[in-house]
Amino acid sequence: MDNFVKTLSRSYTGALASALALLILAGCATTDIPESPDDRLERIAELQQRLTVNPNNPEALRDLGIIYFQSSRFYLADSLLTESLKHESRDAKTRFYLGMAQESRGDTAEALETYIHYEDYSALTPYRNLMQGRYHALSQAVISNQFQTLLAREQELTQNDITENSIAVFPLQYNAQNPEYATLGPALSEMIIIDLGQVGRLRPLERIRIRALLNELEFAESPMVDASSAPRMGKLLSSNHIVSGSYGVSGEENFRMDVADYDALKAEQSATISESDELANIFKAQKQVVFALVNEIGIELTPLERERIERVPTNNLQAFILYSIGLEKEDALDYRAALVYYNQSSELD
């Protein structure tokens, strides 16, 4: 994992409160935790008695940890929930509350390490979605802090800070009138990032880092990067290659994509790479753009890399549109809405 800062900034306070509210809205709040102080003390005594009989009882450790978490005794909650997880690592509820306790006591790095395991749990448990939401929210906030630090020392950055063969793909700008396809930019950029990730000699940057930088620079409404802004982006992202461009759907559903690569180490911008086709062949056009980009960078693909890039994630355009809307919602930290669109996309595909 990246060198995430190890202190919880004030900006996380609102996000943490939102997570607690989301917990209640999602119907995940434990109904067996007493509300009144007297009942809570009685419940604590009961759980402590169970632990006297069996100190390794994971359920008793978990429930006692949750009570202490809700009582703002975060260090004690952390200790109990950590112990519970040692004895029952498959319990998503325990892991979620452990992450919340770690956040609340200010250890962001530990919380991220806890939440990152959300994929180990069934999609049927709501705690998986809650952990995923907290992981992405914390990651975005931490990355934002990192960029604030970089911006403060921007004048000190040089080409020596750029990582060779790293590549950042910025959101594609929509250049057409039909609003139906205006949301495809995030998903098209994401597909390019995923495809470039199949090339062993390239190091694509995560979309979340690029979005965080755009937010810090207040580029959110117009994420286009050109020859004048690309050098700065390369230094701030430590990225060798900066890819930006646009797409459009016009006429009888004709699709067009135009991108260019700026090499921050050579201080050179490539000629524009353009692909057009019927909208029904949008994925074919996107793949051709990737192949042209790789060729422009000067990398010869292996047969296996080419085969992996050629794989199409879906043939359903509507599913792709819904997926892209989900990405937009995720970027806005609206994880509940994002999940709705992702589920709708999966149902159509």
Rank of each mutant, 00 (worst) to 15 (best):
A168M: 01
Y75V: 15
V53F: 04
D91N: 15
A230K: 06
G298Q: 09
G99F: 02
R40Y: 01
A292F: 00
L112D: 04
Q198W: 01
L23K: 14
D38G: 10
V294T: 01
L279N: 02
G298H: 07
N178L: 02
S222N: 15
A111N: 10
G234F: 01
Q132P: 06
R40L: 05
L333H: 08
E42Y: 00
L124H: 12
L237G: 04
S79N: 11
G298M: 07
E35A: 15
T314H: 02
Y323P: 01
E190I: 01
L150K: 13
I309Q: 01
S72E: 15
Y341V: 04
S239K: 11
Y127P: 06
F255M: 11
S250R: 15
L47V: 03
E42K: 10
H241Y: 15
N295T: 15
N3R: 04
N145W: 03
E216H: 08
T125R: 09
R128M: 11
I282N: 01
A45R: 07
I325P: 02
P55I: 07
Y341K: 13
M233R: 09
T30R: 15
Y342I: 06
D39C: 05
A26N: 12
R43L: 00
L317N: 03
D32N: 14
S104W: 00
G185A: 10
L265A: 13
G27Y: 14
S139P: 01
R306M: 05
F255Y: 15
S89W: 08
L157R: 15
S345R: 12
K86I: 10
S345I: 10
Y118I: 02
G251N: 14
E296K: 08
A111C: 12
V249E: 00
Q173G: 05
K329V: 07
Y135C: 14
A212V: 03
T82H: 04
S166D: 03
D263R: 09
N315Q: 12
K284R: 09
I33A: 10
A26S: 12
L80G: 03
F69D: 02
Q173Y: 06
R306P: 01
K266G: 14
R90T: 14
S84T: 09
E218P: 00
L317I: 14
S346E: 13
S238Y: 03
